[in-house]
């Protein structure tokens, strides 16, 4: 994996989308265009956080 692939995988893991092993497999399956989409998302998603799979209850957000 190159540097961008690792960035994408880390991004997916940080958001709880996949575990690290699965994230690596997933990134390897992506087309170049798909990688660009996720790379751009990782670049601008500074405030993105994971939520538990079905947790629809908010926690008090910062005002």
């Amino acid at each position: 994996m190159n540097k961008n692939d690792r960035i994408i995988a880390a991004f997916l893991v940080s958001l709880g989308v996949f575990s690290s092993g699965v994230a690596t497999q997933y990134v390897r399956s992506l087309t170049p265009d798909q990688k660009i989409v996720l790379l751009q998302a990782s670049d601008t998603a500074g405030t993105a956080v994971p939520v538990d799979n079905t947790n629809t209850l908010p926690v008090p957000a910062r005002k």
Binding site: F11, L12, L15, G16, V17, F18, Y26, Q34, V37, L38, Q40, A41, S42, D43, T44, A45, G46, T47, A48, V49, P50, V51, N53, T54, N55, T56, A61, R62
Partner: peptide, 21 residues
């Protein structure tokens, strides 16, 4: 996972938290 592209769109609106589910 490709739906994560929306986080870029939301980030451009303001610095609020975006929870991913």
């Amino acid at each position: 996972p490709l739906d994560l592209k929306i986080t870029a769109e939301l980030g451009a609106i303001g610095g609020f938290e975006v929870a991913v589910q």
